[in-house]
Structure formats: structure tokens, C-alpha cells
């Protein structure tokens, strides 16, 4: 196992970091919360990177990590990590090629009434929930029992946005059109696409957790109380170390899972569950302790901390939270 980034991976990371830091400032994230159209200029920059959805998981994960570090709003994750791979899984090459070229946005509707992204079996519920960005994308891919895939224009569906803690990622509920049928979608390919999206979302969460840890360490150095930086108090130091440790192990777990998926390694299913559970744990931990360390100022609407807290909790829930992935791991370990 070699975690050294190749030159190309390093370039993906550097480019993503520079681009997102510049094009996705907190002001844009806040403006998007009031009016989703505010994220349109960001999409203009991200569309050319949708093609990463066709490449190795490692590259897409590195890109997603930087999206998480700025809590990027908009259809990038839904399009590159969910829609494009699911189109490929169903063999819808023509549409997939157009999406990869950044010409259209899309999302995937899979979870039923219970909100769980379960691929085996695909739910027969007449409703799809937690569909990312459904009210803003061009196309929606409905996963139906079979499994089958039906791809339709957003306007053909009766989409209801659902408010969540997280104003940086929109989700919606939509009814499955009665009698809907789609093209056949190989179950294994579907499961692989969702597993991959799970690891990419874990990478996003790692980026979000990274911001929380870095901001809290920086605040520890600069905030003075009792004539000393609060980061010199051991009670604060030890909280920061424990947050950083959870972040470090989650980061490693995500990169490992991405490599395992790319290599088709037999360990990949466990690795994916470990990655999402570890990333959810790290992000929630960093959000809670980060709030404690920032204290009063962190509790204000003006401070950016709550944008990250919100994203951390909602992204943990999406595609399976810590408990969901522990249950999955238990199934893999114990049968």
C-alpha cells in the first residue's frame, strides 16, 4: 500500500484547492442558502471537472475533498459522483458522454420512504427521498426495482424540496411515476456505482472535517484568555489532538478505500463502509469540539463554523450514516 500521490493526483488536488478557494468563498455559500441560483457561477467552473467521474476513484475523491473543505454548493457531487457513474452502469453511453463533457447536470433517486440508499433490493416504494439537488438539475435518474433505470427531465417529476440542517446541499422528495419502467441496470454495476459515490462523499466529509480542525487549531493559537492563547491550555490541546486523530484516520481510510475500489480489491466493500463511518465520525467530532473551542463566537450566525457543522451532520446522514455503515460492516464481518 503506497499512499504517495502521483504527480497527476497532486495536480488534481492543487488545482481543486486553488479553484475552490477562489471561486467558492463563504459569501457564495451563504448567498446560495437564500437563492440556489447564486451557485451558478461556481458550476461554470466545476463543470469541466465532471469528467473525473469517469476516472479513478482516487482522483474524484481528492477533488471532492476540496469541495467539502469549502462546503461547495451546487450539482457537482450529484452529477459527477452519482449521475454519471449510474448512467455508465446502465450503459447509457450517449447521455453519459454529454454529462462527462459538462453539458448537463443530473442526480440519482434511489432511497425509498426510509431514506436508506439500499441497492439490494431496490425499494418498490412509490416515492424517492433524499435526492440530492433534484430541484435544480437537468435530469433525474430514477432507480427502479429490477433494477432498472429511468432517466427523465426534472420538469417531468413532481419534486418537493425538503429543508435539512444543511443549506449548502439541497435534497428533495419525489413520487415515482405510476407504471414507470426503465432500461435494465445490472445490479452489480449499480452497487459498485453507489459504493463509489459513498467513498467520494466520505472524501467530501474529510474535507469538511479538515476545515473544522484547521480553523479550531488556528483559533487556539490566536484567542487570548487569562493572558495566554487558549491553545496553551491542556484541556483545549487534548480536544484538538483527539479531533485531529479522528481526522487523520478517516483521511487514510478514505484514500485506502478509493485505492481498493480502483484495484477491485476483495477488501473494497469493507473499506468503503469503514471510510464512510470513519469520515462521519471525524466530521461530527470536529464539529462538536470545534464549536466548544470557538465557544460564543462559534455560536453566532455570522461565523462560518455552523455552515460546516450543518454540512457535517447532513453528509453523515446521506448515503448511510455511521450506524448504517457499522451495520453493513457487521454483516460483512459476521454474516
Amino acid at each position: 500500500m503506497d499512499f504517495t500521490l502521483t504527480d497527476e493526483q497532486q495536480m488534481v488536488r492543487d488545482t481543486a484547492r486553488a479553484l475552490l478557494q477562489k471561486e467558492c468563498p463563504p459569501a457564495l455559500v451563504r448567498a446560495h442558502a437564500d437563492d440556489p441560483a447564486a451557485a451558478a457561477p461556481l458550476w461554470g467552473h466545476l463543470r469541466e471537472w465532471v469528467v473525473l467521474g469517469d476516472g479513478p476513484t482516487t482522483d474524484l475523491a481528492l477533488f471532492a475533498e476540496e469541495c467539502g473543505a469549502v462546503v461547495a454548493p451546487g450539482p457537482y457531487f450529484a452529477t459527477a459522483a452519482l449521475f454519471l457513474p449510474v448512467l455508465r452502469a446502465a450503459g447509457l453511453t450517449e447521455e453519459a458522454d454529454a454529462v462527462a463533457a459538462g453539458e448537463a447536470t443530473g442526480t440519482v433517486a434511489l432511497a425509498g420512504a426510509d431514506g436508506r440508499w439500499c441497492t439490494d433490493p431496490v425499494t418498490a416504494d412509490p416515492v424517492r427521498t433524499f435526492v440530492p439537488e433534484a430541484d435544480g438539475v437537468d435530469r433525474v435518474a430514477l432507480v427502479l426495482p429490477g433494477p432498472e433505470l429511468l432517466v427523465v427531465d426534472r420538469a417531468q417529476l413532481d419534486i418537493t424540496p425538503v429543508a435539512t440542517l444543511d443549506t449548502s446541499r439541497r435534497v428533495a422528495t419525489l413520487p415515482v411515476p405510476p407504471g414507470a419502467r426503465g432500461v435494465s441496470l445490472p445490479a452489480e454495476a449499480l452497487a459498485a456505482a453507489i459504493e463509489r459515490a459513498t467513498v467520494v462523499l466520505a472524501a467530501e466529509l474529510v474535507g469538511t472535517a479538515r476545515w473544522l480542525v484547521e480553523a479550531s487549531v488556528a483559533y487556539g493559537r490566536e484567542r487570548i484568555q487569562f493572558d495566554r492563547p487558549i491553545g496553551s491550555f491542556q484541556a483545549v490541546q487534548h480536544q484538538l489532538v483527539d479531533m485531529a486523530l479522528d481526522l487523520e484516520r478517516a483521511t487514510a481510510a478514505v484514500y485506502y478505500a478509493a485505492m481498493a475500489l480502483d484495484a477491485g480489491d476483495p477488501d473494497r466493500h469493507r473499506a468503503a463502509a469503514v471510510a464512510k463511518a470513519a469520515a462521519g465520525t471525524a466530521a461530527r467530532h470536529a464539529a462538536k469540539s470545534g464549536m466548544q473551542i470557538h465557544a460564543g463566537i462559534g455560536y453566532t450566525w455570522e461565523h462560518d463554523l455552523h455552515l460546516y457543522l450543518r454540512r457535517a451532520y447532513a453528509s453523515d446522514d446521506l448515503l448511510g450514516d455511521v450506524t448504517f455503515h457499522h451495520d453493513r460492516l457487521a454483516d460483512l464481518l459476521l454474516g
Binding site: F3, R249, A252, V274, A277, L329, A330
Partner: peptide, 29 residues
């Protein structure tokens, strides 16, 4: 091994062992 609490405890433990192994390798690079 069918007890839901025990299953989750073991899975959480596995998550830690596996992620720390990955962390060790990442540092080794």
C-alpha cells in the same frame, strides 16, 4: 454474533483498527 449491540460494537472496533492501519501506511509513504 446476532446481538445487534454486539454487532455494532465489533463493527466500530473494526472501523478503528482498519482506519489506523491505513493511517500507519499513509505515514509510511
Amino acid at each position: 454474533d446476532a446481538d445487534p449491540t454486539v454487532r455494532r460494537q465489533l463493527a466500530a472496533a473494526y472501523e478503528k483498527v482498519a482506519s489506523l492501519r491505513a493511517l500507519g501506511y499513509k505515514g509510511f509513504a
